[in-house]
Simulated assay, not measured.
Amino acid sequence: MNLSLRKGVIAFCAFLPATLSAHWAQASDCHSNRISIRGDWGQAAFTVEVADDPRERAQGLMFREHMPTTHGMLFLFETPQQVGFWMKDTLIALDMIFIQPDGTVSRIHENAIPHDTTVIDGGPGVLAVLEVNGGLSARFGISEGSELQHPALDQALAAWPCDAPSAD
């Protein structure tokens, strides 16, 4: 093999792993136990438990005394709908982030009060709800219009599909 061809092969071999690892790192950002959320304010990620059946959604975060700052629960519904939540038997303050089918945030209820039985209305067309520790929405700047990335969303409709690069 001549010298210039060998240099080309070496350069290609050095380039290929970097390219593949960048692709896999990007693809690996979308896992069922992780959500990413972004907006004009920046970007954040949470490790989530997914509640996607009636029993799991009914249980939610009841009776939990603590939740790590970087964790949350993602409630997924079969179809977009009007949803309401309450805090009976929930021991920690929560922010409830209501999400449309395309992954955009339509409403946020901040600092839901533990044990409160007042129904918190998420509005129409909600496909998912992300619950995080109370005050985190304001702390990060998460607002209506922010975009959520998660593989459970219909990727053809998603404002931020899983195969799109992250902002970081």
Rank of each mutant, 00 (worst) to 15 (best):
R6N: 11
R6F: 10
V9Y: 12
C13P: 00
P17Q: 05
T19S: 15
S21W: 09
S21I: 06
S28D: 15
S32P: 06
I35T: 03
S36P: 02
D40K: 07
A45D: 12
T47C: 12
V48T: 04
E49H: 10
E49N: 13
A51Y: 01
D52V: 00
R57N: 07
Q59I: 11
T70E: 15
M73E: 06
M73P: 06
G84T: 08
W86V: 00
D89K: 08
L91K: 09
I92C: 10
A93G: 13
F98L: 11
P101R: 04
T104K: 14
S106G: 13
S106E: 02
H109C: 12
N111L: 06
N111E: 08
A112S: 11
A112D: 04
I113F: 12
P114T: 04
T117C: 13
T117V: 10
P124W: 04
P124D: 15
V126D: 03
V129E: 02
N133T: 03
G134W: 00
G135Y: 08
S137W: 00
S137Y: 00
A138Q: 11
F140Q: 08
S143L: 06
S143F: 01
S143C: 11
E144G: 14
L153D: 02
Q155R: 04
Q155T: 00
A156D: 15
A156R: 14
W160H: 12
P165Q: 05
S166H: 07
A167W: 08
